[in-house]
Amino acid sequence: MSTYLKYAIDPEEIQSVVKNGVAVGFEVKTKIPYYRGVSLSLIDTVRISLDGQEYGPSDMTFTIGSETYTFDEMSTMPDLRWEYGEKMTIFVRRNGGIHLGTHRVDVFIGIRVSYMGMVLPFSQSFTVCPMGG
């Protein structure tokens, strides 16, 4: 099992996001599913499902360090990077966040890998039981 399949996402860090007492969505923290860092414009595809309900890039924002981007912004950012070993927080807008109980979260991230001439797919599923929200 590759390094990033083993260590990219800690399911404990999949949590609801609460603002002013209201759960406005949930977040997934992930390290890059590749063996090096890349330009943000190389992030080709991101999909996250909660109990089968799929969310695409337009439902998300992406935070690295202190900067937050939309997916469209990232696609125009060859000079900004997601470094190897660095966590990105993907926020998914969803009223109510993740309700109490056990849920299934599927994460798909595709990165364009030039030398392979393809989008390198990373796909993992988690059973989560987040608190709060």
């Binding site: 890349v38 414009s41 190389l42 696609s75 060859p78 364009r112 030039s114 001439g117």
Partner: peptide
Amino acid sequence: SFIDWMLYK
């Protein structure tokens, strides 16, 4: 070194 010739979609 890596050359990312697929830098843009």
